[in-house]
Simulated assay, not measured.
Amino acid sequence: MGTAVQLVPTYDFEAVTKSLQADPGADLATLLNKLAQIPAPAATDKPVVKKKVDPVAEENFKTEILRVTAILPEVVGKVTLPATPRVLRNTELAALIDESEQIGLALKALKAREDKIKNAVSGHFDVTAEKSGKAKPGETPVDDKGHYLIGGSSAEQRLEAPVPGKEKRFVREKSKGSSRLSFERLLAAYEEKQITKAEFLAFTREVTYRELDPAQFTKGLLSRARRERTQEIMTLISEASHGTNSVRLR
C-alpha cells in the first residue's frame, strides 16, 4: 500500500455564500458537507492481499458455531422474567448468568459468520464488476479489505444480486464521502505559521478548551472584507473521507 494522503475537499464557495445569505442561521457543517466535492480515491500502488480461506480453520469455525448455538435451547428462557421489579433468587441469577454468557458467545460467533458471508458476497460483486467492465484490477480504487469502491447508495447506483424465487436479495451500497472543518488542522496551521494568532482566535471559541466556532466562519463568508481569507483558511483546515461499502439484505 502507498503512503496515505490527506484528503482535501473542494467547496463551491459561491454556492455556500449564497445559501448563507439566504439563511444566515443555516448549519454550516451540514451545508459544507452537502456542497463539498470529495476527490476520487486513488488506486492503490499495490492491490490489497486478500486472505485465502483455510479449509481446516473454516471447518473448525463452523463446528464452534454449531456448538455454541446448540446449547442455547438448554439455557434460553429457563427463567421466567418478572412482570414487575422484584428481588431475584440466587437460582434465577445463576441461570440468567449462564443464559447471558451463552447468548454472548452465540452472538459473537454468529456475527463473525455474518462478516464472512458479507465478505464473500462483496467478492461476488467485485468479480461481477470486473466482468462487466465497471472495475479494473489495479486501476479501480479499493477499500481496506480490497473491495472496489464503486456505485453508491441510491437504487440506481447500488450493486444487487437477485436470485430467482427469493423475495430478498443481497445489495452492496457505497456511502457518500464526507468532509469537515478540522480543529486539529487549524491548530497545526497556526503552529506552522500559516495563519496568525489573531486568525486562530477569531475562528475558535473558549469552552473548557478552544474549539472551532462555526458562527465566525459564517460571518467571515458573509463579509466582503474577510471572505477571501476565510475561504483560504477553510480550505487549509478541511479534511475529507471516502465512502465505505456495506452489504445487506433488501
Rank of each mutant, 00 (worst) to 15 (best):
A155V: 10
G123C: 10
V16Y: 00
E156A: 15
K219R: 14
T230M: 02
K136V: 09
K168G: 03
T218Q: 08
K168S: 05
Y190S: 07
L88C: 09
K176M: 00
V121C: 04
A198V: 03
G133C: 13
E156V: 08
L7W: 13
A95L: 09
E239C: 11
G243S: 15
R158K: 12
R113G: 06
I150H: 08
V163A: 08
D213N: 08
N60K: 02
L149T: 15
I150G: 05
E191I: 09
V87N: 03
D115H: 14
A189R: 01
K197C: 06
G165V: 01
K176E: 02
K197H: 09
T63S: 02
A109N: 10
E191G: 12
A57L: 14
R113D: 07
T10V: 15
K50R: 12
Q37W: 00
L159Q: 01
P82A: 03
N119K: 05
L66C: 07
V163M: 15
L159V: 01
I97A: 06
E64L: 10
T80E: 13
S178Q: 14
P55V: 02
F125H: 03
D143M: 05
P82T: 07
E232Y: 10
N60V: 01
T80P: 00
A70Q: 12
E156I: 05
A40C: 07
T235N: 15
K118M: 09
E199T: 13
P47C: 11
D23C: 00
S153K: 12
G25C: 06
I117E: 11
P85N: 04
L96F: 02
K219C: 08
T235L: 10
R180D: 05
E239P: 01
E130D: 07
L107C: 12
R250A: 14
E191R: 15
T30A: 14
T230H: 00
A83Q: 14
T17I: 08
S175T: 08
V79D: 11
H242Y: 06
V56T: 08
L249D: 09
Q21D: 05
G152M: 11
T230N: 02
E184R: 11
H124E: 04
A83K: 14
V5E: 00
L35M: 02
D27Y: 04
E160S: 13
L181F: 00
S238A: 13
S182Y: 10
A95Q: 09
S132I: 10
G133T: 15
V127P: 06
T208I: 03
A26P: 03
R180M: 01
V76H: 01
K18I: 11
L66W: 03
V247F: 07
K136H: 01
G165K: 06
K118W: 03
L81A: 02
R169A: 15
G25D: 15
S132W: 05
F217P: 02
R227P: 08
G138Y: 08
P164F: 12
D23S: 07
Q157Y: 04
T244Q: 14
M234H: 00
I65W: 08
F13K: 07
E156Q: 13
S238T: 07
Q6L: 14
T84G: 01
A202E: 10
F170N: 01
L107M: 10
E232R: 13
S178G: 11
V76Y: 06
K193V: 09
P164E: 12
A22N: 15
T244D: 06
I150K: 03
L81D: 04
K176F: 03
G77C: 15
